[in-house]
Design a binder for these strands. Structure first.
Length: 129
DNA sequence: TCGGTGTTTCGGA
DNA sequence: TCCGAAACACCGA
């Protein structure tokens, strides 16, 4: 999905810098890269991303990075959930993160993600490689 | 400098 | 099954 980035930035052959991420750290850039690689109809967990970037201890930092992503329009932040496979939280402008849970649920469902008793079916979980 | 996050994992009750 | 603790990186007061 790096193509997506380059296309969106309109500099396929220019410097590899990501304008939107100039102000953020490398750590967060990696998080956003992973998010863009999530296939449609699939989801992943904060822990999986954290482990991919280094240590699972960073899982919380991943959550923060996702929550404050500067390009939510092209980053599918709703495809990230806790390792419990429950819907988790979803920050919405003006509303509590817990209010966004049901919204995430609906969003994922619309993309074809299977739900079993408020939990995502294990076969719909995707892990970065 | 401190406190709080869209989390995770472990130990106890 | 549920609650409380600590650990990461980062932002705002």
């Amino acid at each position: 999905m790096d193509n997506l980035y380059r296309a969106y930035l309109g500099r396929a052959s220019g410097p590899k810098k990501l304008d939107f991420l100039d102000n953020v750290s490398e750590f967060r850039k990696k998080v956003y890269l992973q998010l863009c690689r999530i296939p449609r109809g699939k989801v992943t967990t904060y822990g999986a991303i954290a482990k991919k970037l280094g240590s699972k201890k960073q899982s919380r930092a991943v959550g923060t990075a996702v929550a404050t992503n500067p390009i939510s329009l092209i980053i599918p932040c709703h495809r990230v959930l806790p390792s419990t496979l429950r819907v988790g939280n979803y920050g919405m402008p003006g509303k509590d993160p817990t209010e966004g849970g049901p919204i995430k649920h609906a969003l994922l469902k619309r993309e074809g993600v299977k739900f079993i008793e408020e939990k995502v079916a294990k076969e719909c979980v995707w892990s970065p490689n």
